[in-house]
C-alpha cells in the first residue's frame, strides 16, 4: 500500500508512476511515487527441509535427519534446504556466512567500516586550531599512517591521498616544533 509520507493517506493509481509531481488528495503536498513490481509480489514460502526417507540418502551436516540438497560453496558441507542460504549467486551455510561477515570476506555483508585515513587527516588538521596540541597529535598521525596503511578503507572508491596528506602535515608540524625548540635552546 503506497501512501503519502506526510498524512499517510493511500495514493490512488492515478498518482503512482506519473514520473512527475502530483498533489496528494488529502494534504495537497506534492509527491512523486515510483512503484515497482516487488510491491505486488507474494513473499516466497520458507523452506523447512525434507526428512530423510532412506539410510543411503545424504543427510544435512547440521540437521542429520534432514535430506541434503546442496553442498556449501565455501566449506563443502552438505546442507538441507533449511540451512542453504543463497547469497550473491552462491549457496552458503550459516557458519560460512557468519565467517564471511566477521572476517570481511563478503563485502556485501559489511555494514560498518572505520576509515583510518580520514581519521588521520582529521587528527592532523583539527588540532591546528589550537596549535599547542599538535605536538601530541603529530606523532599519533604518523603512527596511524604506518599502522593502518594497509588496513581496508572505505567500501566506495578511495585513494591513499588522505594518508599522504595527513603524514605530510604531521611531519611539517613536527619540523615546526623542532625549529621552535632549537631556537629556544639556541637563545
Amino acid at each position: 500500500m503506497i501512501s503519502c509520507t506526510q498524512c499517510k493517506t493511500p495514493l490512488a493509481g492515478q498518482a503512482i508512476n506519473t514520473y512527475g509531481m502530483v498533489a496528494c488528495p488529502s494534504c495537497s503536498g506534492l509527491l512523486r511515487a515510483d512503484v515497482y513490481p516487488a510491491l505486488y509480489r507474494q513473499a516466497p514460502a520458507g523452506q523447512v527441509g525434507e526428512t530423510l526417507q532412506m539410510d543411503k540418502e545424504a543427510g544435512c551436516f547440521y540437521h542429520s535427519r534432514k535430506k541434503a540438497v546442496i553442498p556449501c560453496a565455501a566449506c563443502g558441507r552438505f546442507l538441507c534446504s533449511l540451512c542453504d542460504v543463497e547469497f550473491n549467486g552462491r549457496h552458503l551455510c550459516p557458519i560460512c556466512l557468519e565467517k564471511g561477515k566477521t572476517k570481511r570476506k563478503i563485502t556485501n555483508l559489511e555494514n560498518h567500516r572505520v576509515c583510518y585515513d580520514r581519521i588521520a587527516l582529521l587528527i592532523a588538521i583539527v588540532p591546528m586550531l589550537i596549535v599547542y596540541i599538535t605536538i601530541l597529535t603529530a606523532p599519533i598521525v604518523i603512527f596511524m599512517t604506518f599502522r593502518y596503511w594497509n588496513a581496508p578503507g572505505s567500501i566506495i572508491p578511495y585513494t591513499k591521498i588522505r594518508f599522504i596528506l595527513a603524514f605530510v602535515i604531521a611531519v611539517l608540524q613536527l619540523v615546526g616544533w623542532f625549529i621552535l625548540f632549537s631556537n629556544l635552546v639556541g637563545n
Binding site: L30, L31, R32, V35, A38
Partner: peptide, 9 residues
C-alpha cells in the same frame, strides 16, 4: 527488493 521510492516536496 525495492518496492517503491516516494519523494515529497
Amino acid at each position: 527488493d525495492i518496492q517503491a521510492i516516494i519523494t515529497r516536496k
